[in-house]
Design a protein around this nucleic acid. Structure first.
Lengths: 193, 193
DNA sequence: CTCCACATGTAATTTGTTACATGATTCT
DNA sequence: AGAATCATGTAACAAATTACATGTGGAG
């Protein structure tokens, strides 16, 4: 079997800094959720596979709280494999957005209900925007670091967090636009009726 | 087994107008690819399942070119099931974007290579923007229709196409921002070295 | 006569999630 | 003592893709 996006996602996480499987799972859940998410049950077997291939190694470290941690780091071979993959053009993004599937049918819903739903969506995206803005701020501090590896890692983190902000900003704008379009169609159908 | 997003996606497609499995597959591939995509091998079994549940019916129709078509339409029960689902708040979008996973590591790549990759991405997203703008235009014509069902369907199509445009516009902006950030970090590391 | 688009389906495989299983440490 | 967080794993299941399988009709 060849390496999957899942493999490279974990390598990319470890390129930031050495981490345990648990840390990687948290990172996928809180930092990269908007473009890449894997549960812990995908991560542990993949880490074992990466280790067998000699792309990562681990050191057992006592946890401050809880059982022993296996802290993984990239091997030179792992760094090479990662960077070779990174230097290639990326595949198209895959998106599954229920909201848009539903929006496709908003014309068949009472206008008031559709607008209510869009206002709820707008609120959720505004909240998320603030979250990613916070991630941008924390990355911006680290970008200034003297350690070139820390700065390079922070540059990447800042780029992805900025994309998180951009997605939410444009989604909020879309919600506003959609609300306006449905209001307009409401007055139009009243004019007809 | 209860209904999945796949079921509702097909119902939403049929809410626009009666279609064959082949038509639905084309629609997923060309119109909704940016938020929902299923291959034909998922669609045919799901259509059979929806028919068993009484949510859709089909009529065999001769094709202009090729074998017999099964043209499906929503039953009243199918319309109810769809609209009840549509009226509920949507689940969070799921995204798998390799580009951002790679961008996370752009700090470890030669700046020139990273910029090259981002310029390529920018070009692809600009192209896609034009594609969705075309979909918006064609939907806008249909929104003016006197038939209320045609107008309502076109409203939804316009909303989703507008979101397609929004995503691409914000992605192009992000590419520009990312290129600028990498240029800036290049001059910074030169100043240090 | 071969390739392509139309058209419908099934089978095998891959991929990822949910649930299961275990265990340490801290807080209430 | 019970819940929550930390921590690592496996097993059963669901979901979706790729490949397989078949057939029509038109264009070059």
């Amino acid at each position: 079997m060849q390496l999957t996006t899942r493999h490279y996602g974990i390598l990319a996480s470890l390129a930031q800094e050495p981490r345990s499987g648990y840390d990687i799972a948290q990172w996928f859940a809180y930092v990269t959720k908007h473009f890449c998410a894997f549960g812990h049950s995908s991560i542990y077997p993949t880490l074992a596979d990466l280790e067998q291939r000699g792309l990562v190694t681990y050191t057992e470290m006592p946890s401050e709280q809880g059982p022993m941690r296996k802290v993984y780091r990239l091997t030179p071979a792992g760094q090479d494999a990662l960077l070779q993959w990174v230097a290639q053009p990326a595949a198209d993004a895959e998106v599954r957005d229920e909201q848009l599937l539903k929006a496709l049918c908003y014309g068949f819903l009472p206008a008031e209900r559709a607008i209510e739903l869009l206002q709820g969506a707008r609120a959720r995206h505004t909240e998320r925007q603030a979250y990613y803005e916070e991630l941008v701020r924390s990355a911006e501090i680290a970008v200034q670091a003297d350690d070139p590896h820390v700065a390079a890692a922070a540059l990447g983190r800042r780029l992805t967090a900025r994309r998180g902000v951009g997605v939410q900003v444009s989604y909020v704008a879309w919600c506003d636009e959609a609300i306006a379009a449905i209001e307009a169609s409401k007055t139009r159908s009243q004019r007809l009726g």
